[in-house]
Nucleic acid binder design. Structure first.
Length: 585
DNA sequence: CCCATGAATCGTCGTGTCGA
DNA sequence: TCGACACGACGATTCATGGG
């Protein structure tokens, strides 16, 4: 967060007003509730559950008079009766244990900032069931947050399916659940103590693995949660919940229009912190932020399809995708910010823009995706004066077919990845590596011979050649000026080869310039019609996604294309705006 | 190459533990 | 009481994922 432009983790939801109702009134009264003593069981615990955590008992007993002292889990709360002389100094558990206890107990009513990737929406019924089963959750913010974490975190030890495998509980995440004061205790925190308190006060069968046996974080061995609650919870998470009465498990607030509104407002404000690098960027963002949010909520009805598609993804990408989906469920409308080294608008949190494209296509099934054909290649071809590329792009034969023929690679993905890397300045090794990676992911390994052929394709090889000239030019001039007149100096970029960065920034600026006529048309249409027949819903760098409010695709799409194509032609870039065909296999 | 996001990794350090 | 040792945690870095 040192980065001033970075917005904070959007979960600022946690301020006074969002304190759960349950807390009212208890503020000043000491925790009389169960607290008193029941909790404490400090020693009641079965002696042996040992490994997890405590081997401590054995020695403790003897030397300490204060054995009693240490078992008071919440002693600190009742300072009223602190005993004068006692246990102070020679506590076998150490001051840090006691301090950890104290801070954890104070987390009953804390300012807690949950991880962004943690899904927190559940149906009202399930939340009620959880509160009934474990009443302390109602009034202990920290335990409630940690309970939610254990139940819902995507961070699981099998790295595979969402919701299977055991939750991983790194100390940092645990501390985060118990609020700022616990986090601030930093290196002195005894995480094990917190876990034991959770077990003692909340879920008595909770159990976890040891730490650092192999350098990994702790893992939950047994959530210990009541089976009927566990099942209800899983069922709820799996279902499509479009019509469910959702609440935020942590705050207890209904996830209704009002809350969504507040979320949006906060997010927009956070995005304002960054300034656009060009006027077109500002226009794009204003337009996109002005969209009617309700139109994005309509996407949620495709959520089950999207999840099904996401299940197909192999490896770590699946978890990423589900995290994205959860965020979309919470607030599907994307908000954009500006970054240091590009004119592009990027969404401020993961969401539609960063979602796996196959999954995204499911969600936006009813919308139309338009993008520039081979945009990056076209831009490089023109700006670098690559004759063979210009010719190829203007010819009948698609560049992709040509590349496929040359390399013998049947699928487009790796070739696309390779050409991105080529025009954005990637080194030869990078280009090869990216292609190989993309190919492997699709299950069609790409051998080094194929990679070599890619680089020696006439178009690619001339691109590489002209690219070197361009890089040298940038180096000599100490930078370059993009199509918006921004001077990009190599000095301002902290990198081994800032020229490459400049090169890619130039292309990215141009791509925005080529696309902007579509934005202007959209603004115009909005002005001229009572109800805009179409609007741009999502910005995808070299394309965008359009929603039609009236069945006028046949009429309007060609107009949009014409506006953009006109500019491409005027400026001499051999690319066109195309409707992306959903090619299902 | 640009972006955002998060997980894993590794060296360092203060402190509790335990045996002498 | 002292010193060796292991542990829990930090912080920075590196490596993944996703998008173009």
């Amino acid at each position: 967060m040192s980065d001033p432009t970075a917005e904070q983790d959007g979960d600022f939801i946690m301020d006074a007003e969002s304190v759960p109702e349950a807390f009212e009134g208890k503020l000043e009264t000491p925790p009389k509730r169960r607290g008193s003593k029941s909790t404490i069981q400090g020693q009641s615990r079965p002696p042996e559950d040992g490994e997890t955590g405590d081997r401590r008992e054995k020695k403790a007993p003897d030397r300490s008079p204060k054995a009693s002292g240490h078992c008071i889990v919440q002693a600190p709360l009742c300072e009223a009766k602190n005993r004068p002389s006692a246990p102070q100094n020679a506590d076998p558990r150490g001051d840090r244990w006691k301090e950890t206890e104290r801070r954890t107990n104070q987390a009953r009513n804390a300012e807690i900032d949950l991880p962004a990737s943690l899904p927190r929406l559940v149906s009202r019924e399930v939340r009620g069931q959880a509160m009934q089963t474990y009443p302390i959750l109602r009034e202990h913010d920290g335990h409630r947050a940690f309970f939610l974490y254990v139940m819902n975190t995507p961070n699981r030890d099998d790295g595979g399916h969402w919701g299977t495998g055991q939750p991983v509980i790194p100390w940092r995440k645990v501390a985060r659940c118990y609020g700022k004061r616990v986090q601030d205790y930093g290196r002195n925190l005894r995480t094990r103590r917190i876990l034991k308190m959770y077990r003692d006060q909340v879920v008595s069968d909770f159990d976890w693995t040891g730490y650092h046996s192999n350098g990994h974080a702790r893992v939950v061995k047994d959530t210990g949660v009541d089976p009927s609650l566990e099942e209800a919870w899983r069922e709820d998470q799996k279902s499509d919940r479009r019509d469910a009465d959702l609440v935020d498990f942590f705050t207890g607030k209904k996830h209704n229009a009002k809350r969504r509104h507040k979320l949006r407002r906060d997010r927009i404000r956070a995005c304002r912190a960054s300034e656009p690098r060009c006027s077109d960027g500002r226009k794009w963002r204003r337009y996109l932020h002005d969209r009617y949010p309700g139109n994005y909520y309509g996407l949620l009805k495709h959520m089950p399809d999207a999840k099904e598609e996401a299940e197909e993804i192999e490896g770590a990408g699946r978890v990423q995708t589900f995290v994205n989906l959860r965020r979309i469920e919470e607030q599907p409308m994307p908000f954009y910010r500006f970054s240091e080294n590009t004119v592009r608008l990027t969404t401020s949190r993961s969401g539609l823009q960063n979602l796996n494209s196959d999954v995204r296509d499911k969600l936006t099934e009813e919308w139309v995706k338009l993008d520039l054909s081979s945009a990056q290649l076209a831009i490089a071809a023109k700006d670098w004066g690559v004759e063979s590329a210009l010719k190829q792009l203007r010819s009948e034969e698609s560049i992709w077919d040509s590349l496929k023929n040359r390399t013998g690679v049947e699928i487009k993905a790796p070739l696309k990845k390779g050409s991105y890397a080529t025009v954005y300045g990637g080194k030869r090794g990078t280009i090869k590596g990216r292609m190989a990676y993309a190919a492997a992911k699709e299950g069609h390994p790409m051998d080094s011979e194929a990679q070599r052929r890619f680089l020696s394709h006439p178009v690619i090889s001339e691109l590489l050649e002209k690219r070197e000239a361009k890089l040298e030019e940038i180096q000599v001039n100490g930078g370059a000026t993009d199509c918006y007149g921004n001077e990009i100096s190599t000095d301002s970029i902290d990198d081994d080869s800032p020229e490459r960065s400049v090169l890619s920034q130039l292309a990215q600026a141009r791509e925005m310039q080529l696309l902007t006529p579509a934005l202007e048309l959209a603004e115009e249409v909005e002005k001229n019609y009572q109800v805009a027949p179409w609007e741009i819903m999502l910005y995808l760098y070299d394309g965008f996604v359009v929603k039609f409010n009236t069945p006028t695709e046949e009429y309007h799409i060609p107009h949009i294309q014409e506006a953009v194509n006109q500019r491409c032609e005027n400026l001499g870039y051999p690319t066109r705006l195309e409707v992306e065909t959903m090619c299902q296999e």
